[in-house]
Nucleic acid binder design. Structure first.
Lengths: 256, 256
DNA sequence: CGACACTTTGAAGACGATCAACGCCGGTGG
DNA sequence: CCACCGGCGTTGATCGTCTTCAAAGTGTCG
């Protein structure tokens, strides 16, 4: 018998399902360990499993013609992988996945997800919720990529890191390599590095992998100015706790 | 009593639901006409309805600080609006929507969607499918935006237009203004215009709103070279019929 | 201590955005 | 019928930002 970590039981994905049923459901899962740098699956392979990350980090990425990786997202403990690919008709992985560090996950046959979503309305609903949130995050990110400068993107990333990982903004360590972060932000390593330099003038200092955000105005809750209706942007706040969409510490199009 | 267009009955969204039940469900809808240029809803307003477009086109867009619009997507007959916002917890619109041309849609109270998804497993499943597809399309688009040059994006757009609207590539009329297309592709009108000029050298001619694609190699079914596994990219083909991800007629980084 | 991965810095070039001017066209009003 | 206007698209010039290539610097782990 497998002892599932307590956190899996508490996932909102399984909320609304009777405890007994949940227990049975989760017993179908198998623990899997992926060594740092090893591959979980590749683009084009058939979609066989649904995964829940328990420890470590999984990188989802594409490889373009030139051979370099573009990171789509980084999956952390408590998050899931492949729900969309399973629920989609295509049947093949659309991304590559590998472990950034030694990673532990639980895997379920993909039919497990489909069958249980059919059986438990709550699960189907939680999945709908999850996917709606994802696609919203994606929209926001796409807009930011298009609108903001490299330095702004980096600043937002560092801020979000604090909020989501509950780090102390006064001084924390980057959880990933700079190369990985640059790839995650869709920029070249050199651009990322130069962005860090610029941020020093705005109260964000980075030495090695040690970050500290000293500009107090970067730490309070933001109110979104870019909304067309009111001064507040509840949608953003609901998801991120902060409203990063209007971080304007670095006006665009201005020389240093 | 409202006479619903036949097409609504055939939507895959409602597949698997008994005809009688479907009929009752759909009778809850109200026809709504939106005049060209008029607004359907604004960012920040509460999410009140689920919409199915029957005729015309709805533009979903954001307005950024500078005041100009960034088009997120163009919704055509047979497509739906707001399913994600309804299934998401936030409760407020995250986008603006207006009619590009005179548009007809059916609207349902947002609770209608939630309740019926709870009642009919098939509907919940079809929604999951739909959203999984959307998020995939989004991923592809985000990648293309990041990878391809303006000219490549335009070429792909024109190609897709042929496929999705079943137009004759030898000569067809742009269904939208160039300003709108440019906004949809995330570029300035000037950039779009210059891209059209470049495409002439590659067998795509545009005069006014008349397009013709003369380069035969741009018309056959594409096989994806950028996949890491095989020569074929079933995921792309499944969705688009063509694999636009490897359109390389215009090598990047080369001067004209 | 040396090897190697990772990061920084510099210089040059490509690309798209922006600003400005102009051309084209359809509509309106005198 | 003509003059004027506004919406829309094109073209040119300039400028900022990011990428690319190249080389040097830093850190870590055997």
């Amino acid at each position: 018998m497998i002892v599932l970590p307590e956190m899996v039981n508490k996932l909102t994905l399984f909320s609304g399902i009777p405890e007994a049923d949940k227990k049975t459901m989760l017993e179908a899962g198998h623990i899997r360990n992926i060594r740092r740098g090893h591959t979980l699956f590749l683009h084009g392979e058939p979609v066989a499993y649904f995964y829940i990350v328990i420890g470590g980090t999984i990188q989802l990425f594409r490889v373009n013609q030139g051979g370099d990786e573009k990171t789509i997202s980084l999956i952390e403990p408590g998050q899931t992988i492949c729900e969309d690919e399973i629920l989609n008709a295509s049947g093949a992985h659309r991304l590559n996945a590998k472990a950034v560090e030694d990673t532990v996950l639980i895997q379920f046959a993909s039919s497990w997800l489909r069958d249980n979503a059919r059986k438990y309305t709550s699960l189907a609903f939680n999945l709908l919720n999850l996917m709606a949130d994802h696609s919203h995050e994606f929209e926001v990110e796409a807009e930011q990529q298009a609108t903001m400068s490299a330095a702004q993107l980096v600043a937002c990333f560092l801020q979000k890191l604090c909020v989501l990982h509950k780090l102390d903004p006064r001084g924390y360590k980057l959880p990933y390599s700079k190369t990985l972060i640059a790839s995650r932000l869709g920029m070249e390593l050199e651009t990322f590095s130069r962005a860090l330099t610029k941020l020093r003038q705005h109260g964000i200092t980075i030495k090695g992998s040690r970050v500290s955000i000293n500009n107090p105005s970067l730490l309070r809750q933001y109110v979104c100015n870019s909304c067309s209706i009111t001064d507040e942007c509840p949608a953003y706040k609901a998801i991120h706790g902060i409203c990063v969409c209007d971080w304007q510490g670095l006006p665009k199009g201005k020389r240093d």
